[in-house]
Design a protein around this nucleic acid. Structure first.
Lengths: 204, 204
DNA sequence: CCATAGTTTAACCATTTGGTTGATAAGTTA
DNA sequence: TAACTTATCAACCAAATGGTTAAACTATGG
């Protein structure tokens, strides 16, 4: 009856790393087993198939990502502070999980229809208090007339994209890893500033 | 002596499509052959190995992408018009090649060191006339003090990222394909506006 | 202390996959 | 037309890969 959770967690942990690095089709079951220091049959014992193992991991990562966003957009702050906090959150997230964004987008791209259910949770974002605040301020004339989704995507793009395109951007600017980190840090500051300034520019 | 180019091009064409859709490790040589309507041995006859076939295709795509950018940044316009033109160019590029960005970034991510030579060409961007114009205007005080690479990355992020993250963004906004296209079209307009306005805001 | 359920392993299996081969066809040249 | 090069194909191969199995080990509760 005893459920030794350590093996199962070990699998999730190591499989996660390998899937993130190599994607679904690039990852090998044997490699995951070796990495976790267990027998390959254990993978099937706990998760039945490669696909099922992958799905569990993918869902966890997607949830984690979405939760990070939704919490920030729903807490108690002004809309400006939410945008700044969102930049900060996304920055921290990508800084500590450099390969998650590209992994997520790539797997979603290759298997769009399959994951469509899992994507439903992102609809919550539209219902977040950020959207309500934003619309309200817009009506009052304190914010330029804009689609709030565009605003969020400005932040997502501005912070997440550089990590996704890191090899190309590093090459463009001839940046080593340390310089790239600095570049990203600077963006975290500048991106919300630009957007907020633009949105408040109602008089012109 | 006659070089029948049609088979070779057929391979490049169909292999390109499949690699872009499934990535290197997800693509199958047999599938490529079937798609091109030729025998699998032909793939090896013309390109020796999967990797070599892939590399040729990858290089072409990367070149194409880089050329698009460099030409725009080097032609005869003001820096503002270059940013607007760059948005337009990138928009057209991603609109007609929806799966290229994620393909490029993913393969670069999975095999960073290997492609590092191919990335050298992106260093040209720093030498483009855009950078010179920008620095010059900055000295004159017509532009707020900013790293021009950050400015370019604003544009890249703003236009390319939405395509990369299309499944998630579509889900957030509950957009169908047509609505997403509209969303992207709107961004093409708004993104350079925001940046340019920010850069010119020197007096405040 | 043993019966039972859960856990782990080595060996195995069927299929897929990238790649090869040897023969054959189709141009090209002289 | 004969010699030669280039292009194409069906059949084949060895290795890799996801998955299975049957036996062994471990723990725990009665």
């Amino acid at each position: 009856m005893k459920k030794d959770i350590s093996t199962e967690e070990k699998i999730l942990d190591h499989a996660g790393q390998i899937f993130k690095m190599k994607g679904f089709s690039g990852a090998r079951m044997q490699e995951i087993a070796d990495s976790a220091g267990i027998n390959k049959a254990m993978l099937h014992y706990y998760f039945r198939s490669k696909k099922m193992l992958f799905d569990k991991i993918f869902e966890n990562i997607l949830d984690d990502f979405q939760q990070n966003i939704i919490i920030t957009l729903n807490d108690e702050r002004s809309w400006e502070n939410k945008l700044t906090a969102l930049s900060e959150k996304l920055y921290m997230f990508v800084y500590h999980n450099e390969d998650i964004p590209i992994f997520l987008f790539n797997e979603l791209h290759m298997n769009y229809n399959f994951f469509s259910e899992q994507l439903f949770k992102f609809k919550e974002i539209k219902k977040s208090s950020f959207f309500k605040q934003f619309m309200s301020e817009m009506k009052k004339g304190n914010i330029i007339k804009t689609d709030p989704l565009q605003v969020l995507v400005h932040i997502f793009s501005g912070i997440i994209f550089p990590v996704v395109a890191k090899p190309i951007i590093s090459s463009m600017g001839d940046l080593n890893d340390k310089q790239f980190d600095q570049f990203l840090l600077e963006r975290k500051k500048i991106v919300p500033e630009i957007i907020i300034q633009y949105l408040k520019n109602t008089g012109v």
